[in-house]
Every structure is written in structure tokens, then in C-alpha cells.
Design a protein around this nucleic acid. Sequence first.
DNA 1: ACACAATATGTATTTTATACACTAAGAAAA
DNA 2: TTTTCTTAGTGTATAAAATACATATTGTGT
Lengths: 249, 249
Amino acid sequence: MNTTDATSPLLRRRNGKLITDARALVASYPAVPITVDCVIFGFEENELKVLLIRSDLQYFEGKWSLLGDIVKETEELEEAAYRILLQRTGMNDVFLEQVKAFGSPSRHPGGRVITIAYCSLLNIKHHELKIYDNELHWHNVKNLNDMAFDHKEVVDESYNWLQKRIQEHPLAFNLLPEKFSLRELQNLYEVILGVELDRRNFRKKFFSMDFLIDLDQYEENVPHRPGKLYKFNFEKYEKNKKKWFAIDF
Amino acid sequence: MNTTDATSPLLRRRNGKLITDARALVASYPAVPITVDCVIFGFEENELKVLLIRSDLQYFEGKWSLLGDIVKETEELEEAAYRILLQRTGMNDVFLEQVKAFGSPSRHPGGRVITIAYCSLLNIKHHELKIYDNELHWHNVKNLNDMAFDHKEVVDESYNWLQKRIQEHPLAFNLLPEKFSLRELQNLYEVILGVELDRRNFRKKFFSMDFLIDLDQYEENVPHRPGKLYKFNFEKYEKNKKKWFAIDF
DNA sequence: ACACAATATGTATTTTATACACTAAGAAAA
DNA sequence: TTTTCTTAGTGTATAAAATACATATTGTGT
């Protein structure tokens, strides 16, 4: 019979002694290097892209790799992710979230290395690449073969995460210019989710959420009737965030 | 100007040499012990509970701790989680999912230890505790103070994860007896989500999903009109899983 | 002036969510 | 055996949200 009362006399007292030297305990554990990999998504020319570099391991010669680095000894995991992002792209004002830890013992040819994937979305036009070290470039997510390590899997899981996430949170706006047309917004959703959406219902949906600010400006240099430009009202969104509740499976 | 063509001659070639000795590279990295912590939720007497033990570190004397252990050198992270669950509860047929990595440098008094939380839901009645080593017990999630390490945060994040997860996946059935009444199911949702639900609409919702098998049996030994018993049709669910799509924030 | 291409818009229909109150069945007590 | 108590079980009206669908509009380019 079990009990739900932690102080019940029925519970056996532990018979071991308490460990007094926590440092010795931790020192006795096997240790593994920890890296952070950044999965940085961008949107451009109607394609979802991810920032990649060429792996500098001979073992993976020619293969593409995520932006990753070892976590420093006194550094928070998230801090490491922001650092890498800053070092590689010069940007520090972007959204960043942990996606998953990957720890297969054989994922690194040099021995076990556990990595924690962080995902970030940024607007390619706002983040012009100035350094091309290691062939840093935006790579179409549809065309990801020959990746180093388990980075294909990391990108795939991050992409799944993204698909779900943009339906629940207004992340998509991080991938667009500050001023955007509804068509651009719809394209983004269509490309990321891999679906076609009805234009009228899409507009209805977004206008009814009432988070778009009509800028009374229009697209320029388009070879057709220019669309209206909007920006996202983050302040209003933050105030009105709804708590989510809907059993649905 | 950036480019989206990875093979463009505009891209600077990397100027460093390729690293040939991956083992030396990995050996040069700082290394950190990795643990897995299992957040094992159970439901009993209309309360959501989590399996805890008494910490065996003197530093945390008297505080409650999750079931955790170091990840072995050649072990998958998930494998470690299943091993711990098996060792501690004797069970190996439960659902288990990674929730998050926790890696604050100061979360362990003995030095940096990174932990990866795995979440599991099980039916307390099916998993009678036979060992009370370290005062293993089911602890009400509402009453979690004095936890060792950052385990309060780990449980909180796992609980948030669970709340979201049970609305999208039929996890709740793992917490119930095989045969359950609709009232038991509704109680579970009400307790985990912390809301009150309308009985008629709740029934309507679940019957319309059509994943409940009517067993034509009734509750026994209840001091009131007995309710019908159902079981969940996992096979049908697996076949009819819907792909989720609904922009909603 | 004309063709072209994409913008902008409304309505009818279906589906889903919500709010709400009474009868039925069995157990327990009188 | 009657009464009381407690929970099970059910239906309908209303509101909100999702879906399907076609035409006029605006600016560009020839």
C-alpha cells in the first residue's frame, strides 16, 4: 500500500548517510562537453531559410553545419545561445527559445558531445550578412542534405517546433520587415506550414484578431496594384494575450 | 549584399584548415556532468501528484528531489530516463518525453551539472510503490516547497508542458484506470488545467471525438448512481490523428 | 486604351462552442 | 417502504468561428 502523506510513519527512513561533500560527488561523475546550436530561421524571396556554415571538421568535409559553440564553464545555456548569435550575426535583439537537447553518444565523431538547440527567427533584410567566414549563408530549408553531425535532425525538429509555434504565437512577424503587406504575411504562413490558405479568410482572421496597425502606406515598386502596409501591434498583443484552452486531438 | 546560393563565387572560401583530429578537439572542451530527472505525474484521489524522494545531499537536507541520475557514458538521454524510471518504479511501459534542459551553472552545490527533464504520466493504481527508499512517495503538486536543486522550476515547467500537452494529445488516459467513468476523466482535466468545465459540453466534446469505447459496465461501490465505464480507443486514435492547423493567438 | 496582375471585399453555410435545467438511478437513512 | 441524497445522464437554443466562393478595383506596363 502506498501513501500520499510524506511524513507518514509508514515510510521507511532512508538508511544511507547524507552526502556531505557535494563537490566530490560531482567530480566523480562522468562529464561530457556541452554545445549550443542555433537554428536561425529567416524568410526571403518566399522561401524559409536557415543560417548554415561549412563544417570545419575534416570528417564532415563539405557538409553544412549549424552555428554552434561550446558552452562556457560559467555561462547559462541561453546566454551561450545569445552569444553565438551575436558573434555570428551581430544581432542581439531577437527572439530565442530552447527547442531540445540532443545527446546521442555517437552524434559527434570526436566523442560524446551533447548539444542543446536554440531556435531564433530573424528578418534577413534587417540582418545583412557581413561576414562569410566558413561560407555562412542562408540555406533553403527544403534543400538540406549532407549536413554534419545530426544537424539534419536538429533542423527538422526545430522546423516542427516552428510550425506549431507560429500558430500559437505571433512569431512570424520577426521574419518580416517592420512594414509588411497582408500578402507577405500570408506567404510566410503558407510557406512555413506548407499549406494554401484562402486569402479572404486569412484577412478576416487577422483583422478580427485586431493586432495589425494600418499604416496607410502602400507597397512600392511592385508591378501590380500595391497592397496596404501594416505593422504588428506587439503592445496590444502583450496586454490581450489569451490563456489557451481547447481540448483538441 | 548577401546571397542565397551556397556555391556562389561571391562567398569567401574559409581560410582556416580543416580539423583532422576530432577527438583532440572534443577532449579540449570543458566537460560537464549530465543528469536526467524524471518528472513522473500520477493522479489519485482527485489530486495531481508527482513522485519525489528525499534528497541525499546534506546541503539539501530535508528537501524533496526528483528521481534523477547521471547519464551513463554510452547511454542515450532517453534511455537513461527509461532506466531511472524502471529502477525506481519497476515500470517500463509508460509514455516518456523530453521537456527541457536545465543548465544554470549554480543549480548544483557540487559544481555545474546540467540536467535534462523527462516527463512521464502514470496510473498510480497500476504502479503500487513497493520501495520507499529515500522516502519515495507521491507528492501533491500544489504543495511543493523546499525542493532541492532547481527542481521546483523543473516541476513547474513540466506542469506547464503537461497542461498544454493534455489538450492536444490523449495523455490523460495514462493517468486513469483502464476503465474509467466520464466523471473521472472530467475531474482529471479540471484538476490538471485548474478550471471548471460544463459536464454536458465535456461529454459532448468527448463523444463527438468518438474515441471512447462504451464498455456497458458501471461503476461499483459508489454511494450514488453508478456511471458508465469507458476505455480509450488508442488504435482508432492513432489512425485518425488529425494534423493540427489553426492560427490562434 | 488596353491587357495584366494582384488587391480588396461580402455573404451564405456549416461547424463548433457555450450556456443552461430537469429527470433518472442507485445508496443510505428514516 | 418511503424519503432523501447524490451524482448520472440528457437536449436545445444561441453565439461564435470556420469555410467556401466571385467580382470589382487599382496601378503597371505595353
